[in-house]
Design a protein around this nucleic acid. Structure first.
Ligand SMILES: [Mn+2]
Ligand SMILES: [Mn+2]
Ligand SMILES: [Zn+2]
Ligand SMILES: [Zn+2]
Lengths: 141, 141
DNA sequence: ATCCTACAATAGACTTTGTCTAAGTCAATC
DNA sequence: GATTGACTTAGACAAAGTCTATTGTAGGAT
C-alpha cells in the first residue's frame, strides 16, 4: 500500500486533508511499524513543529475508527499504532529491546479452542503474541 | 493450589509476612481471577482499611518477580494480575463486559510459526487472546 | 519478654499515557 | 475572497503507575 493510496482513500471518505493529518499518515508509513502515540508525535514534530499532542491522538483515533490503522497492546504500557490493517497478522516481540515484527503463523488458532473451553462464548477473533529475543539481543546475551 | 500453600511457599522463600501481604495474597485467590491493581486495593481495603495503594503495587510486583502471579494485558488499559501462574494457559475475553476466562487450547501455537516467519528471533513464549461475547452479553445483543 | 534493626508500609509528590474543553484557525466550497 | 463548520491548539484534567522520605513492625537476638 503506497502512502498516496491511503491519503486518496481517506479523502474519498470525506476526510478533510490538513498538514497535520498528512504528516501523521506519512509517519506511520512502512512495514513492521508499531509506534506509540508519543513516538508518532515526536516524528511528526520534525516535519511540522507546531503539531499538538491532542491532534496526534485525535488523528490516530480516527484512523483506527476508519479501519486504516490497528491498535496493538504488545507491551503493557502505551498502545501502539499499526498501519498494516488490511492483511491479518500477529506479532513477534523481542523481550529485551521491544522490536516488533509482523508474522503470519500457519493454521487457524480459533480452531484450536475446543467447545469445552469456550464457556458458552461466541468467539470471533484471536490475537497471538510470540515473545523471544531478536538476533541482536540474543548475540549480546 | 490452596492459599496456605502459597503463603507457606512465600515464607519459605524468606518473604517477611505482614497483614498487608497476607490480604493481597488472599484477595487474589481463586479461579479465573484477573484483577487490576485498583481492584485488588479496593478488596484489600475491606479487610484492612489502612492498606495503601503503594503497598498493593509493591506486593503485586514482588509476587510477579517471584513467579507466583502473572501480569496479563488483555485490555489496553490497566494491567491485570493472575494467580494462576503454575498452569500455562491463555485467555478468552468478552469484548463487551470484559469478563476473562482461562482457557487451554489444543496444539502448540509455537509450532505454527514457521522458520521463515521468525526473523532470526529465538522464540520462547506465546500468548493467545481469544475475543468474543460471553453468554450474557450475546443474549443482550 | 523486651530490644533492635533491617525490611516493609505509608502519604503524597511525581511521571506517563490518554481525554476533554474552550477558543482560535483554516480547508473546502461558493 | 468571504463563509463556515470542521480541525487544531494549549492546557486542564484523569487514570495508572512509580518513587521518596518518613514511620512502623516482623522476627531474630539477648
Ligand atoms: Mn503489526
Ligand atoms: Mn489467567
Ligand atoms: Zn531485541
Ligand atoms: Zn460479556
Amino acid at each position: 500500500m503506497r502512502m498516496s493510496d491511503l491519503l486518496e482513500r481517506l479523502r474519498g471518505r470525506g476526510w478533510r486533508m490538513t498538514a497535520q493529518r498528512r504528516v501523521v499518515a506519512e509517519v506511520l508509513n512502512g512495514d513492521h511499524v508499531h509506534l506509540t502515540a508519543d513516538e508518532v508525535h515526536a516524528r511528526a514534530v520534525v516535519r511540522l513543529p507546531e503539531i499538538s499532542r491532542a491532534t496526534v491522538y485525535n488523528t490516530l483515533g480516527e484512523l483506527v475508527s476508519l479501519g486504516e490503522v490497528l491498535e496493538v497492546a504488545t507491551d503493557k504500557r502505551a498502545k501502539r499504532y499499526d498501519p498494516n490493517a488490511h492483511r491479518p497478522h500477529h506479532h513477534l516481540v523481542c523481550a529485551q529491546c521491544g522490536a516488533i515484527k509482523d508474522v503470519h503463523p500457519d493454521g487457524n488458532p480459533l480452531a484450536d479452542l475446543p467447545d469445552s473451553e469456550r464457556f458458552g462464548f461466541t468467539v470471533s477473533n484471536v490475537e497471538v503474541t510470540y515473545r523471544g529475543l531478536c538476533p541482536n539481543c540474543a548475540a549480546a546475551a
